[in-house]
Design a binder for these strands. Structure first.
Lengths: 364, 364
DNA sequence: TTGAAAGCGCTAACAA
DNA sequence: TTGTTAGCGCTTTCAA
C-alpha cells in the first residue's frame, strides 16, 4: 500500500506536497471519486473508499485549504486586531478565543495595530485580501472606538473588551459595575462601613462604571455615600500609596476598607498600610480589581480581587462570531459578570479558606 | 468613471467582492490585460493601465490572495506557535515579529498550544492545510524542546526564545550569560565586592547560563567566587524575601549587592531589605532580570534590570524567517545581547540619571 | 499592445 | 458506483 508507482506531484514540482490528483492516480480512481472518498460524501464501494484513504495516508496527503476556499468562498480564517500592546488583557482573551475557533477549524490571524489608525487600515486591507470570514477587535481603551465595519464590508465583526461607537455593533465587555458592587457587598459583609474607593483615571468608562457600582453597593447596604472617601488617580502603585497617605494621615475618619480600581493600586495601598502599621485586613481590608495573580499573590497578605473573567469573555466572543458567521443574528452590547476572588486581604485567613472551599464545592 | 454598466460579480453571488473579471468587464479589456495593469507588469498603453486602475478603485476591487496563492504556491502566511500561556515573554516577541512580517505582506496565524503536544500537532496540521510559508516556535521552557520540523515537511522553522533538540534548527535566544556578566560588571563598577546571586530553579538552562555569567563576571573583576553567596530557588517574590532573610540574618559576611534572576525575585528582595532597614542602594545594591517595567518601576527605589531585548529578538526572528523563505541558508543558535537598564536600586540617583543621559545620547 | 487559453487544487453538477 | 466536465479567481505563456 505504499506510494510507489507514479511519483507524487510534490516530487515533480518540489512544492506543497501531494495533491488529490496524486491520491487519485495512485489509488487508480478518478479525481472526483477520490474527493468523495476523502470527504466521505456521496456513495462509494467501501473498498474504494478504503483504498483512497489508505493511499492518502501513505503519501501524506493534506487537502489544500486554499484551493478549497477558492471554491467555497470561505477561508476558514478570522482576523484578530488588537491595540493592547502590552498584552496583559488581550492575551487571556486571545487564548480562549483561539481555542474556541481552532476547534471549529478556524485559524486566527493576529494583528497588532498599537493604536495607529494607518497601521490598522493596512492590516484590515491585508485581511480582506486574505478573505477572512470574520473579525474580532480588542483593545485597552478609555472609551468607545470608531467602528470599522465600513472598512470590512461583508465581514462580521465582534468587539471584545472594547466598544464601538456604533449601536449596531456587537460588543462583549466585563460588567464593571457589577464587579464593583460585588466587591463592596463583600466588604460590607465583612462588617466594614467606611469603605474608600481608590479609583483610576476618570476618562476611562470602566472607572466611571466601577464608581457607579461602588455607590450602588453602598446604597444597597444602606450606607451613605461619602464624597471624601472617593478619589481618582492613576493606574499605578504609586497612586495607591499616595491615596493611603491621604486617607491615613488624619487620625479620625479613616476608612476601614479600600476598594481599588486595579491590583497595582491595591498593591501600592497594601504596602503603604503595612509601612504605617495598619493591619490588613484587621484595621483595613483591601479589594483590588483585575485579579492579576502576579500582583495579587505577591502582596502580603495576598489581595482579594475582582476577576473580569477574560477567558470567558474570549470564549463567548468566539462563540458569538461563530454564530454570526453561520448566519445567526446577534447584536448589541453584552456585559459579562465578574467574579470576586477572596484572599486574606479582605477576610481572616479562616474565612478566606472557607470561601475557597465553598467555591470549589460549586456554590454561587 | 463609476462602476455602472454591468453589475460587479459580488452583487450576483453575494460573496467576497468584485473580481478581476468585473474589473476587466467594466474597463472593457480582457482579464489578462487587467491583470497586467493591476500588477504593473508587461507593457500597456498608459491610457489602458489608468483606466483599469481607476475602475478597480471605483468598484473597490481587492485581489483575492487565496486565488493568487493557489497559483504561486505561496500563501504569504506564517504560523506562530507558542506555549507561553501567560504571554509575558511571547507578546513582545510576537509584536515585533508580526510588524516585520506584516511589512512584507505576510500575515501571522497565532496558535496557542499551552504545552499540550496533541494540541500542538493539531495546530500544525491545520497550518499545513493552510499552506503556511514558514513557522515560528516560541515558548517559555526550562530546556530544549523536541524539534518539530518532521511534522511540517518543507516549511522553514525558526525557534525564538526557545531551543530545539536538533543541532540543525535555527534558534534565537537572549544571551543570558552575557546579561549576567554585564550586571555583575556594573555592580563591581559601583564598588561592590560581595555580590550575591539569588537565582531561579536550576532546571532552567537560562538559570545555569546566568550563573556562569555571574561567575565569569566575578572572575573578570578578580573577585573569588564564594559558594555561600549563590542560592537557587523559585521565580517568586517570596523567594526573594526568603533569600534576603537568609543573607541578612547574620551580622557578618552580608552581601553588599544582590543580583537576582528575575524582577519578581528582585522585587521581593528589595521589599525585604527595606523592612530590615537596609538602605538600597547604599548598603545593598540590587539588579534584577527581565526589565519587566511594572515590577521594576513599582519597587522603591526603581530596580535596575537586565533587559533581554525581546523586541529585537522578535524582529530578528522575523528577518531570519524571511531570509530562509527567500532561499537563503541560515542555521544554528544565535544569542542576542541583553542590555542593562540602570535605575536607582544599583546607583545613586545622580549616577542613574547620568547613565540615562548617556544612553539617550546614543553611546554604547 | 492586447487577448485567448491553460492551469493552480479542489468541489459539485451531471452523465455514463 | 464511477467518471467527465466546468468553474472558483488569478497568473502566465503564447498567439494575434
Amino acid at each position: 500500500m505504499s506510494a510507489n508507482g507514479s511519483a507524487p506531484r510534490s516530487e515533480r514540482t518540489g512544492r506543497s506536497g501531494p495533491t488529490i490528483h496524486d491520491v487519485a492516480r495512485t489509488a487508480g480512481v478518478s479525481i472526483s471519486t477520490a474527493s468523495k472518498a476523502l470527504n466521505r460524501k456521496g456513495s462509494l464501494t467501501s473498498e474504494t473508499r478504503e483504498r483512497v484513504l489508505t493511499v492518502a495516508g501513505a503519501i501524506g496527503y493534506r487537502p489544500n485549504e486554499l484551493a478549497q476556499s477558492l471554491h467555497s468562498a470561505r477561508s476558514k480564517t478570522v482576523g484578530l486586531i488588537t491595540n493592547d500592546s502590552f498584552g496583559r488583557f488581550s492575551f487571556p482573551i486571545f487564548e480562549a478565543l483561539e481555542e474556541k475557533l481552532a476547534d471549529q477549524g478556524f485559524a486566527v490571524f493576529m494583528c497588532n495595530a498599537t493604536d495607529d489608525p494607518a497601521r490598522e487600515r493596512q492590516h484590515l486591507d491585508q485581511l480582506m485580501r486574505k478573505r477572512i470570514d470574520g473579525l474580532v477587535v480588542t483593545a485597552r481603551r478609555a472609551d468607545k472606538r470608531p467602528a470599522l465595519s465600513f472598512l470590512v464590508p461583508g465581514v462580521p465583526v465582534v468587539y471584545v473588551y472594547s466598544q464601538a461607537d456604533d449601536p449596531a455593533a456587537i460588543c462583549l465587555v466585563p460588567d464593571d459595575e457589577g464587579g464593583a458592587r460585588m466587591a463592596v457587598a463583600h466588604l460590607v459583609g465583612q462588617g466594614r462601613r467606611r469603605i474608600a474607593h481608590i479609583s483610576g483615571p476618570k476618562r476611562f468608562e470602566a472607572v466611571r462604571l466601577r464608581q457607579a457600582g461602588y455607590r450602588a453597593g453602598l446604597k444597597a447596604a444602606g450606607i451613605a455615600y461619602d464624597t471624601s472617601l472617593h478619589v481618582n488617580g492613576e493606574w499605578s502603585e504609586n497612586w495607591g500609596r499616595s491615596a493611603v497617605a491621604h486617607f491615613f494621615e488624619r487620625k479620625a475618619g479613616r476608612p476601614d476598607a479600600l476598594f481599588c480600581d486595579n491590583d497595582q493600586i491595591a498593591r501600592g495601598a497594601s504596602e503603604a498600610l503595612r509601612e504605617r502599621g495598619v493591619a490588613v485586613p484587621k484595621d483595613a481590608a483591601i479589594v483590588g480589581f483585575d485579579n492579576w495573580e502576579v500582583m495579587a499573590l505577591g502582596a502580603r497578605p495576598p489581595l482579594s480581587s475582582v476577576d473580569m473573567n477574560l477567558h470567558t469573555l474570549g470564549r463567548e466572543a468566539g462563540e458569538a462570531l461563530l454564530a454570526i458567521m453561520s448566519g445567526e443574528r446577534v447584536t448589541g452590547v453584552r456585559r459579562l459578570p465578574c467574579s470576586l476572588i477572596i484572599r486574606e486581604s479582605s477576610a481572616c485567613e479562616l474565612c478566606a479558606e472557607m470561601f475557597r472551599t465553598k467555591q470549589r464545592a460549586g456554590s454561587p
